[in-house]
Amino acid sequence: MPDAFLTVRGIEAGYGGRQILSGVDLDVVAGEAVALLGANGSGKSTLLNTLSGFVRSRRGSIRLGGEELAGLSPHRIFRHGIVQVSQARDLFPEMSVEENLRLGAWTRGGDATRLLQSVYASFPRLAERRTQTVQLMSGGEQQMVAIGRALMSQPRLLLLDEPSGGLAPAFVSEIASIVTSLKRRHVTMVMVEQNLRLALAVADRIVVLRDGVVVQQQSAGGDEEQIVRQIYL
C-alpha cells in the first residue's frame, strides 16, 4: 500500500459532554475515494466535521501530506486544502450561482475566471444559471453549486457529506457521475453516503464506523449484503 496522504490517528471528538468519536484511525492514499459507512449516530458526519475543523478534536492527530492539522480552526484547515461539502450545503442563499462559486476561490484572491470556466465546463447546467439566486434552485442544483464551489478552491482533499441526501432519484445518478468524474481527475475524497449502492459504485474503499471507532475496512468490490450486515448488525 502506498504512503497515506491523509493520516488520522486516535481522534476523539464530540459535542459538549457527549463523546462521539472514541479513537478513529484512518489512512487515505492520494487520489483515493473512501466512503464512510455506518448506522445513524456511528460518528460518520462527526468525523468529517472534525477533519474540516468544525468540530474540534479532543485528542489525536490529523495529518495531511505530513502537516498536523488537528485543533486548527476551519478557515485555516481550508487553507491547507481540506474542503467540505456539507449536508446542509452551506451555500450563500441570497447570492447568485457565480457569486457562490467565486467565493470558493476567495482565499486565492485575484481573478478566478479561469477556475470558473473549468467548473462551468464540468457543470454546464451551472453555466446556464450563473445569474440565478441559489435559494431559488432545486436541491440537486444546489448540491452541484456546493460541489462546484468546493472545486473552485482546488482542494487537496474533498469531504462530501451525503452528496445524494434528500435528492430526487434522477439527481442521485447525476451526483454519482459527478463524483466518478472527480475520481477520474484524481481528486482525493472522503464521503459519507447513506445510499449504499451509490457509495459502493463510486468509492475505491469503504470504511465502516460503529460507536465512534472504525470496525471494518475493505475494497468497495465486496458483497453488498455482507456489508449491510456489518453496518447494522
Binding site: S52, P74, F78, S86, F92, M95, L103
Partner: peptide, 12 residues
C-alpha cells in the same frame, strides 16, 4: 449571508 459557509470557504 451565511457565517458558517464563510468560514468553510476559508474566510477568517
Amino acid at each position: 449571508d451565511n457565517e458558517i459557509a464563510a468560514a468553510a470557504m476559508g474566510i477568517p
